[in-house]
Amino acid sequence: MKSIPVLAVAAVTMTLLLSGCVAPTQKTTPLKCSVGEPMTQTTLYFGLNRPAGPVITATEWQSYVDQQVTPRFKEGLSVFDAKGQWLGKEGKLARENSKALMLIHVPGAASEQNIEALRSQYIQQFAQDSVMRIDMPVCVAF
């Protein structure tokens, strides 16, 4: 049996992962749903470590959700515990407890402004470098 080089597997995996990515200015064909309605799923990843000082507590996180997220997305949201891992600038492996926030919303300027406000507020309030954002079209039925 012939082995597949690791780089080839990584290239194919990356191609599949990025195949759904579209530049914001590019027109896309609307998603056709056999069940449900086309919407957008946005998942934001929030690190819970501060560069200096204590980790962000469960109380601080819940306060952020109550004061910043809920007023902007009253229709609903989901929060998941996550574990982040990446290669730092010095080549050292970094790990961090995180929260994943999943929002299902109608695409548009209002949602976009609210999502970016959440990211900016968290970065500022908790001295973070970034909040990762992933968007994808989905079909939603209740």
Rank of each mutant, 00 (worst) to 15 (best):
M132L: 15
F73D: 02
E37R: 14
M1G: 13
V22I: 08
K99C: 00
Y45C: 05
A58W: 09
R50E: 01
W61Q: 09
Q128A: 03
G91Q: 09
K99M: 01
S78M: 10
E75A: 15
A58H: 11
S63K: 15
T40F: 00
Q113D: 07
M1S: 11
M102H: 03
T70N: 05
P107Q: 10
G47S: 08
Y64K: 15
P24A: 08
L18Q: 11
M39F: 03
V106C: 00
C33D: 07
L17E: 06
L17K: 14
A58G: 12
P30Y: 08
L118T: 04
T43S: 13
C21Y: 14
E90W: 05
P51E: 02
Y45H: 10
K83G: 00
A109M: 12
G108R: 11
A8V: 06
A127P: 05
V9C: 06
V69D: 04
P30H: 09
M102I: 06
Y45M: 13
N97A: 03
Y45T: 11
V12N: 07
D81I: 01
L77K: 14
A110V: 10
G84Q: 10
Q41T: 03
Y64E: 02
V138T: 03
L48G: 06
Q62V: 01
E75N: 09
K27H: 11
